[in-house]
């Protein structure tokens, strides 16, 4: 550990999700503001290269496409980290107090408390941005569905969806400004490269994230604790994916029927081809694992 110069902080998957959310959110804010008729009024469409900005049909299409990207990334993020049981970014009791101390320490008023992989204020910032995005996605879905012909919502639902969507936009803009403003402070700057390369400076980790550093050291000494997917969960994963695939792809309409039938058969007889196949790939059931 002492020889290591840099430490991996963000995997490729995490960086992919971060930049997907960042780019799609930027496009959504730009195209969303275009749904107010402001680009024409304030003559943004007179700027060379932006003449399209006042065309609602273009900005609306862009808004939908970016929304598809954002929703994909958001759901991916939630499912991915839930399955891996990575919850270190979720806020905890006492985070407000701790953030205050950390920010005070950045200006040299006090000693910084020992931190884990994420600082208390990072957990709070994550919660704020995640909440804003979820609010925007949920209200956005209502706004999308109302555009179908034959679907009418009550005026109250639409009003709530519209105003909360507009509020969410203001919240996310504030969140992004605060997120970027954090890098004005020198103390936070070593974090910047990790969202591009994945790595942070090891000295920085030792100094600022001493608890994380300890965890990493423990892990290297005991060997990577690999928590493979148990056979039971792997089977459920396959069954669920097949059902969804059957629902989404027309040509695979028979898949849910097949999965349902095979689940019944396996429950009654114990015969399950998926299980046999997954065993070949090296999955073990919970019981077998405990024995090992």
């Amino acid at each position: 550990m002492n020889k290591v110069r840099r430490i991996k902080r963000h995997s490729l998957v995490v960086r992919f999700v971060h930049w997907s959310v960042a780019v799609s959110t930027f496009l959504l804010i730009f195209s969303g503001l275009g749904q107010l008729p402001i680009y024409k009024r304030y003559m943004v469409d007179k700027i060379p290269g932006l003449s399209w900005s006042s065309d609602f049909s273009i900005t609306l299409t862009l808004h939908y496409v970016a929304a598809i990207w954002l929703v994909f990334a958001a759901i991916f993020h939630i499912v991915y980290h839930s399955l891996r049981r990575e919850f270190a970014l979720l806020p905890r009791r006492g985070d407000f107090k701790e953030s205050f101390i950390i920010i005070k320490s950045m200006f040299g008023f006090c000693e910084e408390p020992p931190c884990e992989k994420y600082l208390a204020e990072q957990r709070l910032a994550y919660a704020f941005i995640a909440f804003s995005l979820l609010l925007l996605i949920v209200t956005g879905f209502i706004k999308v569905i109302k555009n179908f012909s034959g679907i009418t919502f009550s005026d109250a639902v639409l009003n709530w969806a519209t105003h909360l969507h507009n509020l969410g936009m203001v919240m996310i803009v504030i969140g992004i400004i605060a997120h970027l403003a954090a890098f004005i402070l020198k103390a936070n700057r070593p974090l910047l490269p990790s969202m591009f390369t994945g790595y942070v400076d090891a000295d920085y980790v030792r100094k600022r994230h001493s608890l994380w550093c300890e965890q990493l050291q423990k892990k290297t000494s005991t060997g990577a604790s690999r928590q493979g997917l148990t056979l039971e969960r792997a089977v459920r994963l396959v069954a669920g994916s097949f059902i969804f695939a059957g629902l989404v792809v027309d040509a695979l309409w028979w898949l849910p029927w097949f999965v349902g039938f095979m689940l019944l058969v396996s429950a009654l007889t114990g015969f399950c081809p998926a299980e046999t196949l997954l065993r070949q790939f090296g999955h073990q059931s919970q019981q077998e694992k405990v024995k090992v």
Binding site: T61, I68, F244
Partner: peptide
Amino acid sequence: ENVNGLAEGLLIAPVAGVLAAGLAVYKGMK
């Protein structure tokens, strides 16, 4: 008319997100 065609993609996006995440976790564990 045009964006309602795209809305289908929005309804599929969460499903695709779940599947892709499942796949990524699976590959990560292997």
